[in-house]
């Protein structure tokens, strides 16, 4: 496993829908240079005046990143090292192509391509760390990778998902 470690955060506003969630962050393999991604840490929570409500937060496999605001990943291990080859995007306006169908279905139906699904109070935060060898792995196939979204039936507050990965 190569050793360059990176981090990116993504933000999004909940859109008061359980069937058409908007994604906050995607991390995908470079469009021309194929490389694997090992995702080893995820943080998430609601950041926009959170109320006592619960959202489902979802991390899934994707095959295309959709359209989003580009985020420059931070090299967390060695700033003198090369820049990330992975492509990170925040605040999606066109959803990533999830392996599991969530557009029109929502985040609450288990399906192939799911990686993590957590119901979380808006006033809470969640952090998951993988041990060495226990990371999520994305194949070295261009534009494959990971993305995260959250939903709520009525809230329209902002939420955040952060990912750390090795590539």
């Amino acid at each position: 496993m190569p050793g360059a470690r990176f981090h990116a955060d993504g933000f999004q506003t909940l859109i008061a829908s359980l069937t058409a969630p908007d994604s906050a962050l995607s991390v995908t393999v470079h469009a021309t240079v194929a490389h694997r991604i090992w995702l080893y840490e995820i943080t998430m929570g609601n950041v926009g005046t959170p109320a006592d409500l619960v959202s489902v937060y979802y991390i899934g496999q994707v095959t295309a990143p959709g359209t989003a605001t580009a985020v420059t990943p931070t090299n967390t291990a060695d700033n003198a090292d090369q820049a990330a080859r992975s492509v990170a995007g925040s605040n999606h306006t066109v959803e990533p192509t999830y392996v599991a169908t969530i557009e029109g279905t929502g985040l609450r139906t288990p399906a192939d391509g799911d990686l993590l699904r957590v119901p979380l109070n808006h006033r809470g935060t969640y952090r998951w760390v993988a041990p060495p060898g226990g990371e999520f792995v994305a194949p070295a196939t261009t534009t494959d990778g990971f993305a995260g979204a959250a939903d709520h039936a009525s809230a329209v507050t902002d939420y955040m998902i952060g990912m750390h990965w090795v590539e």
């Binding site: 809470g124 969640y126 952090r127 998951w128 760390v129 060495p132």
Partner: peptide, 13 residues
Amino acid sequence: GKPTGYATITGVY
């Protein structure tokens, strides 16, 4: 014998 991941949830209070 395999290492597990670790999740921390910080609650409302």
